[in-house]
Simulated scan of single mutants.
Amino acid sequence: MQENNGMEGIAPLPPVRREPPTVRLRRLAAELRRLRQEAGLSQAEVAEKTDINLATLHRIETAKTKPQLRTLNALLDAYGATGSTRTDLIALQKAAKQRGWLHGIEANLRGQYSAYIALEAEAHEAVNYESLFIPGLLQTEDYARAVIRGVLPTDTEAEVEHRVTARMRRQALLESDTPLRLWAIMDQAALSRTVGSEAVMRAQFRHLIQQAQRPHITIQVIPFSAGSHPGMLGSFILLKFAMDSPDVIHIDSMAGDLFLEKEADLQRYNRICEHLRAMALSPADTAALIASLCGDH
């Protein structure tokens, strides 16, 4: 006979559904990790210095939990963070649960630690569609320099070189022991526009052909003959993360960086990716097209 425990007719409580981290919370976590590392402190040393539980510190740095304001202030004190960096991170903490991000707070943080670069470094896969450029992770240094000079004509030479260096460093994600899986899709227009010079384009095409041979990189081109397609509305990058972290869409525009996190947006862009892959040339035919363009140049 089953023992009567006085709980008949009471349904068990549903499991608590943990809210996935927002871009803001991920950004805050990445900045706190960076500040700790720049201070030369281990997590254990910070825990001892601030009396913050080590497990809590780990959850904060992996965007599993939002730090309370007093906890954040204790961490910023330990890292010696002052001025605009401190102000911006406190603003991030207050807005950490809000989804989506159109430029704003991160503009005042160090450029090389922008929100997108921090997210890209944590992703395990990226689908990058470009309508006018070679994707940044596949650009040669000379092509990147020519693109940046053309797109940002008011930047100084030092600013251009800083951006080129940052772009080249990002490409280390493709060289690690567990490299980022990259699926790059381009409109043929990105290949047809001469950027820099014909010599720059020839080198860029050869680089694309070499990169396409790597098992973690897939390159496709949507030919002019395909006609109109969903990518004509603009370029975007779909970042995919391991475990239970949701995808993020990044759109770079003159108005700033736009991050899309809502489920409806993610579903829409995943469908767009499927359409673009279907309309593009196969990877083999893409390589043949690029090789023919290399000969033309």
Rank of each mutant, 00 (worst) to 15 (best):
F205M: 06
F205I: 04
F205T: 02
R206P: 05
R206A: 13
H207R: 09
H207L: 09
H207Y: 15
H207K: 15
H207G: 06
L208G: 02
L208M: 11
I209R: 05
I209Q: 07
Q210C: 10
Q210G: 12
Q210P: 05
Q211N: 14
Q211R: 13
A212V: 10
Q213T: 15
R214V: 10
R214G: 08
I217A: 04
T218C: 14
T218W: 06
T218Y: 08
T218P: 07
T218E: 08
I219M: 04
Q220L: 13
V221E: 02
I222M: 05
P223E: 13
P223V: 12
P223Y: 07
F224T: 10
F224V: 04
F224C: 04
S225P: 00
S225Y: 09
S225N: 10
S225A: 15
A226H: 03
A226P: 00
S228T: 14
H229P: 01
H229S: 08
P230Q: 06
P230N: 07
P230E: 07
P230S: 12
G231P: 00
G231W: 00
M232E: 08
M232A: 12
L233N: 11
L233P: 03
S235I: 06
S235Y: 01
F236D: 00
I237G: 00
L238C: 05
L238V: 04
L238P: 00
L238H: 02
L239F: 06
L239K: 01
K240R: 13
F241V: 05
A242V: 07
M243G: 05
M243Y: 09
D244K: 05
P246C: 13
D247Q: 05
D247I: 03
V248F: 01
I249C: 02
I249D: 01
H250C: 13
I251Y: 02
I251V: 15
I251T: 03
D252W: 01
D252N: 09
D252E: 14
S253Y: 03
S253G: 13
M254N: 12
M254I: 10
M254S: 09
M254A: 14
